[in-house]
Design a protein around this nucleic acid. Structure first.
Length: 154
DNA sequence: TCCATGCGCGGCC
DNA sequence: GGCCGCGCAGTGG
């Protein structure tokens, strides 16, 4: 499946399409990983991300996102417990920034986020990674942050 | 290899 | 019905 990574819209799934679960989302090809928030590879770049509201340093401003890289979290508490590194899918997102590749954004339900769907997951269109940097997160550990802005459609 | 922004279920109120 | 904690599962990066 990883041999045919699609950048941009996946045929048959327009912006606003809703999925009931990560399994459905995975089967569609809009976001293949069943758990991970970032889909991509270090060689090609990242093609999609999921926002679920579970990363303490994430910010959702609608057309502007600050997305946190992965890694360094305690699986039980969800808190950052070590520094994140620019490897694996964090590096894939950085590559998407350098190449200017479109990234599909999927939002998962999140009661605290007015931009999130009430339930399940929703494809919210294409964004570009404008910038990325390393900083100290709320936890005090290093996190990688990615700023994504929605691509205007005509 | 090992991790990953799940998920269902049962207990409890 | 809703919340929460537990632990299993299965695949792609």
């Amino acid at each position: 499946m990883g041999t045919h990574r699609i950048f941009g819209h996946v045929p048959g799934y327009r912006e606003g399409y809703e999925f009931s679960s990560r399994l459905d989302l995975s089967a569609s090809g809009v976001h293949a990983p069943r758990q991970a928030g970032i889909s991509g590879s270090q060689r090609e770049g990242a093609d999609s991300i999921v926002l679920s509201g579970k990363y303490e340093d994430d910010e959702d401003h609608g057309n502007l996102l600050i997305y946190t890289g992965h890694g360094g979290r305690d699986p039980e508490s969800g808190k950052q417990v070590t520094d994140q590194e620019l490897v694996r899918n964090n590096l894939a997102l950085a590559l998407s920034c350098q190449k200017g590749l479109p990234v599909r954004v999927i939002r998962g339900s999140d009661p605290g986020n007015p931009f999130a769907p009430p339930e399940g997951y929703r494809y919210d269109g294409l964004f570009r990674v404008e910038d990325y940097w390393r900083e100290t997160g709320r936890s005090g550990f290093t996190v990688w942050r990615f700023r994504l802005r929605k691509i205007d459609q005509e």
